[in-house]
């Protein structure tokens, strides 16, 4: 992964992290919340090659782990997202071209973000952190899935176009 690509990835996820912290977290959603950060990460991973996907997930995980309000150990989100980056990059071919299959793209994003939150909660519990009540977890995951599904037509094409512009321009001789 080139230095340019790495710096773009870091900048992108830092920017999304700031938007998530300062804007999205302020919105009172009816059910649960909405993790724009995870939704965009999974959108980003959908078009990445294996090695780039791992590094992107690692960068995104580290940024998320360094969130000061989190009580969970540093590295937990990184490990979780690395695991999912492996799964996504391994089975990405079976999903086909997500640009042409919007429903599949939406389902992929919903399942990806929801499962990553669930795995994170489970791993957090395994490492001795307190686990929220079951219904709270269910409500949060369901709410996040709902908003991820509803907003997919907005952010998914945007991320793809942005990536094409950023990296295609760079690769043009």
């Amino acid at each position: 992964m080139s230095i340019y690509r790495t710096s773009v990835t870091i900048s992108f996820f830092l920017a999304i992290f700031l938007i998530q912290e300062s804007l999205v977290n302020r919105i009172d959603f009816f059910i649960g919340g909405f993790s724009l950060y995870l939704a965009l990460l999974f959108s980003w991973l959908a078009t990445e090659e294996k090695g780039e996907a791992f590094i992107s997930a690692f960068i995104a995980g580290i940024i998320l782990d360094l969130t000061p309000s989190f009580d969970t150990p540093v590295g937990l989100w990184t490990a979780t997202l690395l695991l999912f980056s492996y799964l996504v990059s391994t089975y990405r071919e079976s999903l086909g071209d997500l640009d042409e299959r919007p429903i599949t793209a939406a389902l992929y994003l919903v399942v990806g973000t929801s499962l990553s939150i669930l795995v994170y909660v489970i791993l957090s519990g395994v490492l001795g952190n307190s686990i929220p009540p079951f219904f709270t977890v269910v409500r949060e995951i369901a709410g996040n899935g709902l908003w991820t599904l509803l907003f997919t037509p907005i952010y998914f094409p945007l991320v793809n176009r942005m990536k094409i512009r950023l990296f295609a321009l760079r690769s043009t001789p």
Binding site: T78, A79, L82
Partner: peptide
């Protein structure tokens, strides 16, 4: 990368 994450944990 996974080892690094586990190391951080």
């Amino acid at each position: 990368l996974l080892v690094t994450a586990l190391f951080l944990i």
